[in-house]
C-alpha cells in the first residue's frame, strides 16, 4: 500500500485518455462510450485507493482483509453511474428523435 502503483497508474492514464478522447467526439454515441470508459476507470481507481492485495472483506476466511470501505463506495458509485447512464441513453434516443441526428455538430438548440 505504501508503494506507488506505477502499472496501475499508467493503465488508468490510458483509460482516462481514451475516455476523454471519446467524450470530445461529435458523434453522440461515442460520447456515451467515453463517459462509460471514464466511469469504469474511476471505479478501478477507487477500488485501489484502499490498497490491493488483501483477501475479500468477508469475515471468517482469515488473512489480511482488503479495505472494505472503498468497495462499498465503488458499489454506490457504480449504481449511481448506472442509473445516470441509463437516463443518458434514453436522452440520446430522445435527442435523436427531436433533432433527427446524433451528430453534435448538426444539432443546435435555441440556446447555445
Amino acid at each position: 500500500m505504501s508503494d506507488a502503483e506505477v502499472v496501475l497508474a499508467l493503465a488508468l492514464g490510458v483509460l482516462f485518455t481514451a475516455g476523454t478522447f471519446l467524450v470530445l467526439r461529435r458523434d453522440l454515441v461515442r460520447v456515451v462510450f467515453g463517459v462509460l470508459v471514464l466511469s469504469q476507470a474511476t471505479n478501478v481507481y477507487l477500488v485501489t485507493m484502499g490498497g490491493i492485495g488483501g483477501v475479500a472483506p468477508i469475515l471468517g476466511h482469515g488473512g489480511t482483509i482488503t479495505d472494505p470501505l472503498v468497495q462499498a463506495l465503488v458499489l454506490t458509485a457504480v449504481v449511481i453511474g448506472f442509473a445516470t447512464t441509463a437516463l443518458l441513453l434514453v436522452l440520446v434516443y430522445r435527442t435523436y428523435q427531436e433533432h433527427g441526428s446524433i451528430d453534435l455538430d448538426d444539432i443546435q438548440g435555441a440556446v447555445r
Binding site: G19, V23, L28, V31, V35, L38, S39, A41, T42, Y45, L46, A77, I80, G81, T84, T85, L87, L88, L91, V92, R94, T95, Q97, E98, H99, I107, G109, A110, V111
Partner: peptide, 24 residues
C-alpha cells in the same frame, strides 16, 4: 422538447465527467 432533450443531454454528459473527477 427540442431544447429540453439537448440541454439535458449536455448537462448529463458534463456532470458525468464531473462525477468521475469528483470521485478521483
Amino acid at each position: 422538447g427540442r431544447d429540453g432533450t439537448l440541454a439535458a443531454t449536455r448537462y448529463v454528459v458534463l456532470n458525468l465527467v464531473g462525477s468521475s473527477l469528483m470521485l478521483l
